[in-house]
Amino acid sequence: MKKYSYYPGCTLHTSAKEYDMSVRAVFSALGVELIEIEDWNCCGALEVGIPLLAYALNARNLALAERAGFDLVVPCSACFYNLARTDHALRDEELRRRIGTNYARRIKVRHVLDVLANDLLDEIKMRVKRELSMRVVPYYGCLTVRPSDFGFDDPNHPESMDRLLSALGADVPKFPSKAKCCGGPILMTAEEVPLKMAGQILEEAKRVGADAISVACPLCHLMLDAKQPDIEEALGKEFKVPILYFTQLVGLALGIKPRKLGLHKNVVPAREVVEKVLRQARRTLSVGRAAACSKKRERLRDS
């Protein structure tokens, strides 16, 4: 069985519970084991302005993962940025000595999007139970893809989520805002700016006729989903665009029950798009069954 270490990060236990639920459900459906590293600490998000402190906090997590012996899968893009940035900086032996870590860079830090779109795509395709019959725009945000010094996709025009969602049957239109900034990091200290920034992303999704936006970061999700009513109020517009973690969509395609994917935990209700996918899947199924039946009938008649 394939195995990865898992670093959920603080938000996956609170505001991004449905991300945690859907990541775990998808990996278990694929028969890939995720082992949560023991006693991990906060990565410091974007609030640690002291590089050595940030490196030391993250080196502790990296060393814990290295002891477990598997590559480290990270769902939150801010955590991914911190862990990958530290791993990148620790190529420098002098720096490793300075912060006193025994981390030897024997494992890799991987965003969960990278792993699903690049390592496990064939496994996913083999197990698709329902086509994602919906129009969905992929939104990557910033730290999923930047800086490319330690990223896994194009920093301006990433493609991995596009490819993954298309492979699951979704209609994925061009979305120029896909790697724009949602403003999330300054939400608590300068609210009016991120409301406008996230508003532009929602507007563009509406313009291209999206049924939903697919995201890969808890902070982007919070900004676009839980803050969506405030954005609507600030801009005097109505959006009502469901914001789904891409793992919730992969899970739906794999036939996992919506509740197990935490689809009831999204603030902007996802019920309508989920129903659309399920309805279409039932229809395809019954068409398929009817076709199988008529074939059987023909065989019986011919014999």
């Binding site: 974007l46 940025y81 910033c142 930047r146 900034c181 403003g183 300054i186 300068a190």
Partner: peptide, 10 residues
């Protein structure tokens, strides 16, 4: 107000 979006870095 910088969001650490890394566009300038990139």
């Amino acid at each position: 107000l910088c969001t650490s979006c890394q566009n300038c870095y990139e």
